[in-house]
Amino acid sequence: MLGLINRALEDFLKRRHGSAVWQRVVLRAQLPFDSFEPLLSYDPALTETVIRAACVELGRPRESILEDLGTTLVSHHDRDGLRRLLRFGGVTFRDFLHSLEELPNRARLALPDLHLPTIVLEDRGGGQFTIRALPPFAGAGFILIGLLRAMADDYGALVLLDMMPSEREEDVISVLLLDEAHSEGRKFDLALRAS
């Protein structure tokens, strides 16, 4: 598995809690190195080890850490890349929700080795949606919840998000879209100025 997610967790812990905390996580997880390379492959079991170590070091449940991670992935202004790539999914938050099913294919276009779980979106009408995905590691659905929350803000939409009891090992997320144009949201230009 690519180091992308591990590295995201590493960056999040360093930025939010400081390098010293990350170093303690490295020691606790007994990593043979002190930083993940986003584009190199690692044993999938390492992700679980690092998450466990982070939970102990921070004294926080994995759900809250992973949800924060998901939010930071798109709301951190230094790292506009992922937010922009996700915004290509649609003009409105509703479009964006529908584009989630394309997400694994879009990810594979970017990096052929990046395997995201299949995401299924059910539009139940009246602004109610259900998202189902098989999590690659325990709690992965909370990253998606954090990410969806931040993207809703980005689009200026008002939503309620909840993790439902899992079904057949799948994470089930309920989305209630209350107002698509609740606030201004953030601007999105299709083409980025070449820097």
């Binding site: 790539l85 230009d189 083409a191 980025l192």
Partner: peptide, 30 residues
């Protein structure tokens, strides 16, 4: 697209321009 401030709505729903722009950006990030 940058010079003329075009948006998603300026392209036909079947047009792959937005996907192309996505790829340009993905390629740059990678």
């Amino acid at each position: 697209v940058q010079a003329h401030a075009l948006t998603d709505a300026d392209f036909a729903a079947t047009d792959l321009t937005v996907e192309l722009l996505y790829l340009v950006e993905v390629k740059r990030a990678v």
